[in-house]
Amino acid sequence: MSEINYIDAIRKALHDAMADDPGVFLYGQDIGAFGGAFKATKGLYETFPGRVLDCPISEDAMSGLALGAAIEGMRPVIEMQFADFSTVGLNQIINNCATHFYRTGIPAPVVFRLPSGGTPGSGPFHSQSMEALYAHYPGLIVFTPATVADAYSMLREAIAIDDPVIFCEHKLLYRWLKEDSIRGDGLPWHRARVARVGKHATVVTHAAMVHEALRAADQLSEDGWEIEVVDLRCAKPLDRTTILGSLARTGRLLALGEAFPFGGVTAEVVSIAATEGFELLDAPPQRLNSRDTPIPYQPDLWRAHRPTAESIQAALRRLLAF
């Protein structure tokens, strides 16, 4: 079996969803014959004529169009070229798509694919992690897959779900992350995964930070520390059961994320721990996020802006020493 990477899994999920359901179509910039800025749609334009459409640079109109198409029974998948640009469509996503089912009773099965997160040299406007922004609004489901198998299965699930799904796919994982198969463990999309079992502390994280956390856990294991890593998979709704179950085993929490520090997924995880798992904790729950500045361009600055295995390890050592 040849290796498959994260972007291949996304492409295969799009392909298989389109093959299974004639209502699925793709709309985005440069996604047609060109195959997309990251080649997520390569070959699909030829395989599915008339269903992979290049569109003008109009994130607002793309997002409104998706809602309209969904009203008429289609299942549009919108590719934002970069997650950062989805802010131009924010109004349509949060005010029109997200409110539609509650207001009208008519569901809006729309998927917004957001190529997310930092890579070296991408700078302030091609690096952002937007999951917290969208998770704030009622009516949206937010996925943050961290594995090749999840990239496939969760995108298939996102397209099948009758509500708007913000699909945050991490650009750093696109080609770096390879697995032998896209076959996963069949975990439902709303369940977090214990990616590594431990007993001294839990790191709750998602997307590319899962891999940084696993590296930090490897490093700490050399000193005898057994770190549990929980991969949230779905940023909204959060799987409280798995988070609290892990805290019951370890008693210590580091909530880790690549996004900006104010509010966000890590804050929500700490809030769950503090309000619902207080008696499980042996130490104050901790958070580690990016720095509170725009994301810098220069690669060394960028690496110092985001959490890394080293800074995670340091945070965990402080937590373990409490």
Partner: peptide, 12 residues
């Protein structure tokens, strides 16, 4: 905002 929603309905 409703302009592009109508566009989507027509395109669908």
């Amino acid at each position: 905002t409703m302009t592009s929603v109508v566009c989507g309905m027509l395109l669908a």
